[in-house]
Amino acid sequence: MIKFSKKTYLYKIYTWMPLIILYISVFNEFDFNYLNLEYFSFNFPFILIFYFSLKEYHHFDFFLVFIAGLINDTVVGLPLGISSLSYILICIFASYLRNITIRPHLIKDWFYFLFTISLINSVNYSILFLFFSFELEIVFFLINNFFTFLFYIFFTTIFNRYLKGINE
């Protein structure tokens, strides 16, 4: 594994990596849509935000997450504030889970994540449909929800290794 000296700039960039990746993903809509698989899409920022809020990562600033939401809205073309609200709600749910959990368990976190993203996607869909009269396909939301849930485990493994590298 790569080891950094803790005083170098490279190490500092490495510690800010979750937020950098979050910003790249919102600027770029990172969801593998260019694979052209029918209906396939997942929400990578949801996974990243939930994981690092749950782990209370010290470089994961909620205000910057909020700004990332605004950028995502601008790039996707949604009304400003929708994604910010979703991201902050994920942070709240993750913080609540962290507060009530004494012994963390991956599977419990996983299903709690499913509950959280389902609720947030429903809120999103309702706001867009009722207040902004957007024509949206609910199937896309369901499939996006399902794949986001599936990919959580995969990304958790990668993020665990990242945190392990930081702590070492």
């Binding site: 909020f66 605004l70 009304p79």
Partner: peptide, 10 residues
């Protein structure tokens, strides 16, 4: 931040 998001949506 939740209130701020709601305010921006409004």
């Amino acid at each position: 931040l939740v209130f701020l998001s709601a305010f921006i949506i409004l």
